[in-house]
Design a protein around this nucleic acid. Structure first.
Lengths: 224, 224
DNA sequence: GAATTTCCTTAGAACTTCTTCAAAATCAGG
DNA sequence: CCTGATTTTGAAGAAGTTCTAAGGAAATTC
């Protein structure tokens, strides 16, 4: 497998390249959007990983240019903390996945593999699933047992976070940080309220509940 | 590394066990599917190696049962020559790899290692175990001999502390400090009360007691 | 073997955390 | 800048957890 990494911080590039190499993934790289897009047009990569903020051509422009040139290689966007709006923008522009920095290397690896697998299988839609429930990152649709469920943007992000972390108790602080991008202050109950919204849509109408409370520790997505 | 080997031919079990031991791999084993699945539910193995054809529960049923019980230990299926359909069936049922008998010992070894490596980097479930008792720090579940036990947050912390310090007498002062984060004042009997709660849940329903009193010195987690 | 200390057990009071509702604030599109 | 959708806040009530306090049991000491 061979990927293209576009990122202006040279230290980051070096360490990611080394880490990926150790897992049998070849890495080409570029330090700015323009050279990145040229490489992407001349080579055939399994996945492109690109920063959003870069000198010259930024991540979104890069993406638009690639798609305009009929290059449909899956793109994983890297956005810094505090730029969560970029998630939505990026996916709208046609990114297949995104990650918020700082991230765990392990997670990057598994997302790269997921994207490569999907595009190898022929389907170029990015979806996450769990026990009959699906969300489509490309068109932002959500279904459970085939039934269409409408989610608002925040609800979607929350559901997405759970689907990416099934069978793991997730604290409210973590949700506040990862989904809302705020440092959790215990006076706010946004998280609780949204858990309630999401439950009303994805659990209430169905027999099997998926989103469970772990008292004192947060919430967990699991069947059983 | 510790694996579970399920196979009804005792000679095969013995020779594989010996060979694996020589390569620093601990081996638990069972001669039929049912005992195998019980062992798998009560312990935490890196890999499970299972024959397909067995008395009672066969390899596929075993696999289905494990997955239903949220046990995602990678499974390597052994199928005899002339049963190639089993490959497909096995992989469909959720096996992670298979081998056709007869095979080279060297190959088995390398596949076991590959599975262990893959699952180690993919999932970050951390569990602590002691004598048939397990707690999973990721989903905050606790089991003993496969039986699910519900613990409140404080109980969980207490149990966790004992599992991290088995075979050591731990004073009440230490527990107060490490679990409750308070400087122990001898008028309070919280620790005693919680020891009682925990014993009711993890020891009372079982024959073998694990949490013992060391008079004048605290408590100790040990079997025997 | 009585007194003393340490440990066990229980119930419920005090406290925290979770759920839910409704209203206020914010945002986005016409 | 009006409107409807979305997000956030606040507050009340329910559910679940933690701790205190007190009486009884067990071990130890004298």
């Amino acid at each position: 497998m061979k990927i293209l990494l576009i990122e202006d911080e040279k230290k980051v590039v070096q360490s990611l390249k080394q880490g990926l190499n150790e897992h049998q993934i070849e890495v080409d790289f570029a330090y700015d959007g323009l050279s990145g897009s040229l490489l992407a047009e001349q080579n055939c990569y399994d996945v492109i990983v690109s920063d959003v903020i870069m000198p010259g051509l930024n991540g979104f422009d890069l993406l638009l240019r690639l798609r305009k040139n009929q290059i449909r290689t899956p793109v994983l966007m890297l956005t810094a903390l505090g730029e969560t709006d970029h998630k939505v923008q990026g996916l709208d522009a046609g990114a297949d996945d995104y990650m918020v920095k700082p991230f765990e290397f392990k997670e990057l690896l598994s997302r790269i593999r997921a994207l490569a697998r999907r595009s190898a299988e022929g389907s170029n839609v990015s979806t996450l699933s769990f026990s009959g429930m699906n969300i489509n990152l490309t068109n932002r649709e959500c279904t459970r047992d085939g039934v269409r469920i409408e989610l608002t943007p925040k609800e979607f992000l929350l559901v997405e976070y759970f689907l990416r972390n099934p069978y793991r108790a997730i604290s409210k602080a973590e949700l506040a940080e990862k989904v809302w991008d705020i440092t959790f202050d215990s006076n706010s109950n946004v998280v609780e309220v949204y858990i309630n919204y999401v439950r009303n849509k994805i659990d209430k109408p169905f027999k099997k509940k998926l989103l469970h409370t772990v008292f004192g520790a947060g919430y967990i997505l699991k069947d059983e």
